[in-house]
Amino acid sequence: MKFKNNTVTLDATDLKILEALQKDARQTYTAIGKSLGMAHSTVYDRIKRMERQGIIKKYTTVIDAEKAGAKIITAIMTVFTDPKESENVAKKLCLAPQILEVYTSLSEELLIIAKVIAENQEGLHEFIACSVAPLPGVLRIRTSMITKKFKETQFSIADNSKVNIYKRNP
């Protein structure tokens, strides 16, 4: 593991360990070591180091909301903002539990793109009308309701190495 401009460069062993954890984060150090042909102590040391460095942010559970009985609708909301207020609007959106993800984008205008959930269309409208539209700097809002999900995934070491986004160091 090497440090370069505040970023950490991972070697091939680190990447293999991350790949194994992304497949199943509940497997033991011994199991990972066995599958990768290395000592469990090596696996342990490297995982602990990557946790300290914030490369491994957390271990969590991915829940299928539908199977768990949560009846929700999801929408992608595009908020057009005054450039001076954009940062504040984005920060305020981050505080709302209805908002799952927030991004900014600069196309012709400065935009905030957010993923929003609500119990139904009325709840979604109520949230946007009462909590988003009144924020200072909001110029207008476009919202698209998601009707069918084709793919949803997290950043994956394994998948990204296939498309050369992440180059492995020897």
Binding site: M77, Q121, H125, A133, P134, V138, L139, I141, M145
Partner: peptide
């Protein structure tokens, strides 16, 4: 106040920018 103003939409979640 801003919070109590009427905000004009054209459909669910689509705010016109007028209040």
């Amino acid at each position: 106040s801003r919070e109590k103003a009427f905000y004009f939409f054209t459909s669910i979640g689509n705010y016109t920018g007028e209040s």
